[in-house]
């Protein structure tokens, strides 16, 4: 464990908590893409299947459980409890356009052709593109609530910090996982234009609006 990975994990945890609290306290999931949340729940499910078979540390197991519980709780709130506030008209990105190619790629490019490893690879590739329905929804509505933009900033920062962690691990322990690194770079690049808008607008107290 290094400070970059710890900050990354905390940023990820912060993002998940921000979103869950936003939905719970405002009793509304307006402006949030339920499809992205379903994809994130799928990412954690396929990545953490080794939760009970491969113990790394208390921290590792605890965080995996928290991510799983929070992501399913968010999906539950969006599609059941506060279903009336779910904006399905703007959340129209076709998830199968992501899941099918990612599933195929996971079969073709992986470290080890075993069920657990292919599912882990699937989760890594899927996480890289899971935010697309959310970004697509914001481009359709042309704006995002400030709290949603904080959620996205924390979520985007987490994988950017992981990239720094991978550089650090490469130089300190010679460790690198090319699949995670390439997918992590793609994932972070997808946030770039959002990062620009967040820093130039939200941090100046303005509403996050996309140029129509």
């Amino acid at each position: 464990m290094n400070i970059f990975r710890l900050l990354g994990d905390l940023s990820h945890l912060l993002a998940i908590i921000i979103l869950l609290l936003k939905i719970w306290r405002t009793r509304s999931c307006a402006g949030v893409s339920g499809k992205s949340q379903i994809l994130f729940a799928l990412v954690f499910t396929t990545r953490y299947l080794d939760l009970f078979t491969n113990f790394i540390s208390m921290y590792n197991s605890a965080m995996k459980l928290i991510y799983l519980v929070c992501s399913y709780a968010t999906v539950f709130l969006m599609y059941f409890k506060f279903k009336a506030t779910y904006d399905s008209n703007h959340d129209t990105f076709r998830m199968e356009f992501l899941v099918v190619p990612v599933g195929g790629l996971a079969f073709l490019v992986n470290h080890d052709f075993t069920p657990l490893e292919i599912l882990w690879t699937f989760s890594i590739y899927l996480e890289a593109v899971a935010i697309l329905p959310q970004l697509f929804m914001i481009s359709k509505t042309g704006e995002a609530e400030t709290i949603t933009s904080h959620y996205l900033f924390a979520l985007g920062s987490y994988r950017a910090l992981y990239i720094v962690n991978w550089v650090f691990r490469f130089y300190t322990e010679g460790f690198f996982d090319l699949i995670a690194i390439v997918a992590g770079c793609v994932q972070t690049i997808l946030y770039c234009d959002f990062f620009y808008l967040y820093i130039t607008k939200v941090l100046k107290g303005k509403q996050l609006t996309l140029p129509a």
Binding site: R5, L49, D50, N60
Partner: peptide
Amino acid sequence: GWKGTTHDEL
């Protein structure tokens, strides 16, 4: 059994 390399990152 399910092998797979162990991943220590979240």
